[in-house]
Design a protein around this nucleic acid. Structure first.
Length: 493
RNA sequence: GCCGCCUUAGCUCAGUUGGUUAGAGCGCCGGUUUGUGGAACCGGAGGUCCUUGGUUCGAGACCAAGAGGCGGUACCA
């Protein structure tokens, strides 16, 4: 080994856009995953775990005229020259799995999935290059009841995450309605029209962020933003712009009122009629189940991503304003979204397989709750049993087991340091109490329990160093058999 | 990708018109306790001033390029 190699020290650094989650944030993610998985499991969904890598063509991540995967995915070629890509969501792998194992699976297939997905995009607040999603999907159910169920489940998950009524809303729309509006203003069913439709969708997606005026520019000629960047518009005329904006603004307070406002905008279009029928059926179900109390609403300005949605689309939004450390409002985007994608599995099978689903961005959700100070952090750490005598470890382990059996989180100090360092460790772990058994206690068959919170309070009153040194505030000794009760008492004070 | 702002100790920052050994608060470590965290007092460690190149007798301060961070915008199938 050369001297140079020997001295090499890699600089510890985290890849850009990737996040470490420790402590409260990691706990929050786990709690959200548990909440969502609990709701879905209770509704009969089966867990499915698929692999992180997929063949890129199975993800549909190829540009039509290109031989390498699209930007936005992390991809590389395998030994056999095939393009592999990290999954960018859990829906495309589901489509692959269903197509691959179609015959033996129960239809409809109800499955939920939890896991990280990867996107090669610019990171931002609540936008990560690796993040955890929880998905639930129903495959093989063509009717709007399946969509309505997805919406109600999404609301249930938000509730299970600890949010109160009014702090979240599931917004509902149907892509067919916008298609009808665009057809009505002369957007042709051609390649050119498809591009135009795409630009319209992107423009509408920016409504909440940029406002109606900017979106009107994007629907028309184009828009120059504050940084001087120019975005080409959809090229609609004034009549078209007004029609699209009127559609997006047709949302009303109640489900019925919104449906009534939308009806006249659909004209004679068959697509529009289909979309309205679906939306009406969803609204009736949601209403009958009592979710029209603010948890679910129709919002024509919701369009969702661009790709595979074919009908109803939904989005879960936090209604609490999020601020950063400087008090500036932070836009986190939606906590989740979904919709119907009847053509996705057909890519593999040649015949349509209807499907609908919902996906939560757990990492973003957790980051938003963190910014809101709503993490529900654990009140305290584990009880720490000091390891004062190296030859007494088995008795320390026995005490820890007794506490755990009584449902008290506990650990034995595992370091090699002295008592002072062990106390500091317990303090840093936010331990509610420490158990002290050294030579003295062992000789007399006792244990000492020190209440760290109480000790902290008492320390504020001590001014004299002698008192500090000699006082043993907030700790009590008692018989070894009373360990659990003494710790419990300390926890309750 | 494009535009703008930022980068000095672990963290938050100060650093006069370019001028000797670069500072503070908090944190960390140690001592006043060799069986005690947290108050108080005393002491200590810790900096390639993001990197590279340039201007200058002299650069943490000025210039250029690059990297990283933040914000906006685009992209997000």
């Amino acid at each position: 080994m050369s001297k140079k190699t020997k001295n090499f020290r890699p600089r510890a650094r985290r890849p850009k856009g990737f996040e470490d989650r420790y402590g409260a944030l990691a706990n929050a993610e786990n709690a959200l995953i548990g909440a969502a998985a609990g709701v879905y499991h209770a509704h009969g969904f089966e867990p499915l775990s698929t692999c992180a890598l997929e063949y890129a063509d199975c993800l549909g991540k190829f540009l039509p005229d290109d031989d390498r995967p699209n930007e936005g995915v992390f991809a590389f070629t395998d030994d056999d020259q095939q393009w592999m890509a990290l999954r960018y969501d859990l829906t495309a792998p589901l489509a692959r799995f269903v197509a691959e194992n179609y015959d033996p699976l129960p239809k409809p297939l109800r499955r939920f999935a939890v896991g990280p997905v990867w996107r090669n995009e610019k990171p931002g607040p609540g936008r990560f290059r690796e993040f955890i999603q929880v998905d639930a999907d129903t495959v093989g159910a063509p009717g709007p009841a399946a969509d309505a169920e997805m919406i109600m489940l999404a609301a249930d998950v938000m509730k299970a995450a600890g949010l109160a009524n009014g702090e979240y809303v599931i917004r509902i729309n149907n892509r067919k309605l916008l298609d009808a509006v665009l057809a009505g203003i002369g957007v042709a069913d051609t390649d050119e029209g498809a591009i135009q439709r795409l630009r319209v969708l992107r423009a509408i997606d920016k409504l909440d962020r940029l406002g109606a005026d900017a979106v009107a520019q994007l629907l028309g000629e184009g828009r120059k933003d504050a940084s001087g960047d120019y975005t080409k518009g959809a090229g609609l005329d004034a009549r078209g712009i007004n029609a699209v904006l009127a559609f997006t603004q047709a949302g009303r307070a109640g489900l019925e009122a919104t449906l009534s406002a939308l009806d006249p905008l659909m004209g004679a279009s068959d697509t529009g009629k289909d979309g309205m029928d679906e939306l009406r059926a969803i609204a009736e179900t949601v209403q009958a189940c009592g979710y029209d109390d603010g948890r679910a609403m129709i919002d024509p300005s919701i369009v969702r991503g661009l790709g595979y949605y074919t009908g109803p689309v939904f989005e879960a939004d936090l209604r609490i304003e999020t601020k950063n450390e400087k008090g500036e409002p932070v836009r986190f985007g939606s906590a989740g979204g979904g919709g119907r994608y009847d053509d996705l599995i057909a890519r593999f099978r040649g015949q349509p397989v209807p499907a609908t689903g919902f996906s939560f961005g757990v990492s973003r959700f957790a980051a938003a709750l963190h910014a809101l100070g709503r993490l529900g952090e654990e009140a305290h750490g584990p009880v720490v049993i000091l390891a004062l005598e190296a030859d007494q470890m088995t008795s320390y382990f026995a005490m820890a087991n007794e506490l755990r059996a009584a449902n008290i989180r506990a650990e034995v100090y595992m370091g090699g340091s002295g008592m002072k360092a062990q106390m500091k460790y317990a303090d840093k772990r936010n331990a509610p109490a420490v158990v002290i058994v050294g030579e003295d206690e062992r000789a007399s068959g006792e244990v000492t329990v020190k209440n760290l919170n109480l000790g902290k309070q008492l320390s504020g009153q001590i001014k004299d160093n002698k008192e500090w040194r000699e006082g043993r505030p907030a700790q009590t000794s008692g018989a070894r058999q009373a360990l659990v009760n003494m710790v419990r008492e300390a926890l309750n004070r």
